[in-house]
């Protein structure tokens, strides 16, 4: 009873977040990143005569490298505050989370610090990425066996 009354009053003083604008900025920045990625793939295909699959791998490597480097230089978190989640959802966000964790725990040493904490944020992504990959792999296999 007391809590509902309190929550009612507290809700009146909650500032509005501009979600729509944030979503729009993320859409544009994420889309731009995709465009750059596509450009890189085309570049690798035409100038280094790579197959599209290999070119994609190199494009991802470039993104991971750039995100880690910018994290180390202390720029990436500032970019995120401007360009929002458009930078966090692609592979750059994954690299950023690992690099920032590694940096954060460097004072605790290579074993108890970096080694055991590097996957603090990215760990969930890896675990559930593998689980879902197994799950969908199984579904695909069953479809192939029974329906094709």
């Amino acid at each position: 009873m007391k809590n509902t009354k309190y929550n009612h009053i507290a809700d009146l003083h909650k500032p509005k977040e501009n979600r729509l604008i944030h979503i729009f900025i993320s859409f544009l920045s994420g889309g731009f990143l995709g465009l750059v990625g596509e450009g890189l793939v085309e570049f690798f295909v035409s100038y280094f005569s790579l197959s599209r699959t290999d070119a994609s791998t190199f494009m991802i490597l470039v993104f991971i490298f750039m995100a880690s480097l910018l994290t180390g230089l202390g720029v990436f978190d500032k970019l995120v505050s401007i360009f929002r989640c458009g930078l966090l959802i692609p592979i750059t966000g994954f690299a950023h989370s690992m690099a920032s964790c590694a940096l954060d725990y460097r004072n605790e040493g290579p074993i108890y610090g970096i080694g055991s904490n590097m996957f603090k944020l990215a760990g969930s992504v890896i675990v559930y990425g593998i689980v879902s990959a197994w799950f969908f792999g199984t579904i695909r296999y069953l479809i192939e066996v029974f329906f094709l």
Binding site: G74, K78, S81, S100, L121
Partner: peptide, 17 residues
């Protein structure tokens, strides 16, 4: 920040509150 929230260099977005 390290103890209660995210790593320092991690770009976590914060609300106005």
């Amino acid at each position: 920040e390290r103890q209660f929230r995210y790593p320092i260099e991690y770009g976590s977005l914060r609300p106005h509150t």
